[in-house]
Computed example of a mutant assay.
Amino acid sequence: MRSMNPSDGSAPLPLFPLSSVLLPGAATTLRIFEPRYLDLVRDCGRNGSGFGVCLILEGSESGAPALPAAVGTLATIEDFDRDADGLLVLRVRGGRRFRVRQVRVRDNGLLVADVVWLADDVPARTRPEHMLLAELLRRMLERAVGEGVVRIPEHHFADAAWVGWRLAELLPLGEHERQALLQEDDVHARLQRLLEQVA
């Protein structure tokens, strides 16, 4: 583990609690309307930094500060726009995982956390007992994007971490099961949990 914030090395990480889990490599869309999150986006744009996304354990996405899960994902803003109602819409992508050490609430209601950055996944080939999952992922992607799947390098399907994260993103799992996968450090244990889900 490294205790360094990849954004600036020291600043607390602002949190955006959600009712869904953001996984490494996955993208999601956020509609921003509360002043605390507009401030967050402004700060991220000014500093070129990201923010943390954590699953809500208690509370809701708007209103009083929610209780976030202890493990979350760094979100980086890829694009932004306005919707028909004039609300700011962000497209963000998940990056590194982190563990929350301490949370504080700013005057505007924004949660900020001291975090420990979790180690990146160790490169590992998909084990024979999990090759069924790689094939399942290939078929799911073929159905989703058709011929576009040929643009995915073949070596990705032999990458245990990549297969695990993409299946966790695409399978119809409950958010607490996704959270359990996010908290799992072992890539093979992650795939075993997924195999038990589809078996």
Rank of each mutant, 00 (worst) to 15 (best):
56 I>Y: 05
56 I>D: 02
56 I>G: 02
57 L>R: 15
57 L>Y: 02
59 G>W: 03
60 S>L: 11
61 E>N: 03
62 S>W: 02
62 S>V: 15
62 S>H: 08
63 G>R: 04
63 G>F: 02
63 G>P: 02
64 A>D: 09
65 P>M: 10
65 P>E: 12
65 P>L: 13
66 A>R: 01
66 A>H: 00
67 L>Y: 00
68 P>Q: 06
68 P>Y: 08
68 P>T: 07
68 P>M: 05
69 A>V: 05
70 A>G: 13
70 A>C: 04
70 A>Y: 00
74 L>T: 01
74 L>A: 03
75 A>Q: 03
76 T>N: 06
76 T>D: 11
77 I>K: 04
77 I>M: 11
78 E>W: 00
79 D>A: 15
79 D>F: 04
83 D>T: 09
84 A>Q: 07
84 A>S: 14
85 D>N: 09
87 L>R: 15
87 L>Y: 14
87 L>P: 00
88 L>I: 11
89 V>Q: 13
90 L>K: 06
90 L>F: 05
90 L>A: 09
91 R>K: 14
91 R>H: 09
93 R>D: 05
94 G>K: 13
94 G>R: 13
94 G>M: 13
96 R>D: 12
96 R>Q: 15
96 R>W: 03
97 R>L: 10
97 R>S: 09
98 F>P: 09
98 F>Q: 09
98 F>E: 05
98 F>I: 13
98 F>N: 08
99 R>M: 07
100 V>K: 10
100 V>S: 08
